[in-house]
């Protein structure tokens, strides 16, 4: 069969216009979700389109839009946390400033969406879109961030890592993510390095104390929905004296490489090489600092 213009088989199903609900408050939002449990949440809407220039966006059949719920735009800071509402845009988050937002996340913000969409795309939306984890998911997991999931009559907090790993934590019908909570723990070293080809991103944090490493977190974002995070490795590096011996750095890097290989057999040797090198570079940089 011939291809259509863009080389894809066309969709032949008949269209029906989507039904869109625009609640003005969180309680109205939750009620709507209870009444329409199969509906999709619309926040920034920047993950909707494909390449086809059809004059229309691919909106699901029933949509509950968040943009009318003003209190979900809120970005609040306490001594221990930064809380970001589900309606807060990437631009709004970045304007909180680099002195508040942890560096590993701040450095990631320009890479999440194209500049023309920063004003509507939301950070929570980026966490919720099932796809790659090369953008904000890796730094948020490294920072130990959590999300608040609400439904009529209840709410719960789960970590972003658990949410993205799919350990029974995906949204249930009638539920919505309302807030993102990022711990503001002090870190001495924070890194976010996306690869130019978009295949991997590297997020790492470390805290030092009394000549040793107090805590380490190394998370690799990939093109798969889950990140690479070897928590055992983090734990083993914690409490070590600095400088780390070169053989230990090499061993740690190799373990991360092996974890990555097990995570995605589709990784090329170049991907694995980069992961190994980034880990050893980060651990060596702790000594240099």
């Amino acid at each position: 069969m011939p291809q259509n213009n863009a080389g894809h088989a066309p969709e032949t199903s008949k269209r029906t216009s989507p039904r869109v609900y625009t609640p003005r408050s969180q309680s109205e939002l939750l009620q709507l979700l209870r009444r329409h449990p199969g509906s999709r949440i619309y926040a920034g809407g920047t993950a909707l389109s494909g390449l086809e220039d059809t004059g229309r966006l691919a909106i699901p059949a029933t949509v509950v839009a968040l943009y009318g719920v003003d209190d979900l735009r809120r970005i609040a800071r306490t001594d221990r946390y930064l809380e970001i509402g589900a309606n807060a845009t990437i631009r709004a988050v970045s304007r909180v400033g680099s002195n508040v937002i942890p560096k590993t996340l701040y450095d990631c913000l320009p890479h999440i969406v194209p500049p023309g969409l920063r004003t509507i795309a939301t950070l929570v939306g980026n966490v919720c879109v099932q796809g790659t984890t090369t953008t904000s998911v890796a730094p948020l997991i490294a920072l130990g961030s959590s999300i608040e999931i609400r439904r009529v009559g209840g709410s719960r907090w789960i970590t972003v890592q658990r949410f993205r790993s799919g350990e029974g934590a995906y949204l249930q019908p009638g539920e919505v993510v309302t807030r993102l909570r990022i711990p503001l723990s002090p870190w001495d070293a924070q890194v976010y390095r996306p690869s130019e080809d978009g295949r991997i991103s590297f997020a790492a944090l470390a805290r030092r104390s009394k000549g040793g490493v107090d805590a380490v977190r190394i998370v690799i974002g990939t093109r798969l929905p889950e990140v690479i995070h070897n928590r055992e490795l983090d734990a083993e590096l914690t409490g070590r004296k600095l400088p780390l011996p070169d053989r230990d750095i090499r061993a740690a890097a190799e373990r991360m490489r092996n974890t990555a290989q097990a995570h995605d057999p589709g990784f090329s040797s170049f991907d694995l090489y980069r992961i190994e090198r980034l880990v050893s570079w980060f651990l060596r940089s702790l000594t240099r600092r």
């Binding site: 069969m1 011939p2 259509n4 066309p10 969709e11 032949t12 269209r15 059809t54 004059g55």
Partner: peptide
């Protein structure tokens, strides 16, 4: 245009 896209399936080569 939408009808044209759908009509692609009528072309056999």
């Amino acid at each position: 245009m939408d009808a044209l896209r759908e009509a692609v399936s009528c072309i056999r080569c």
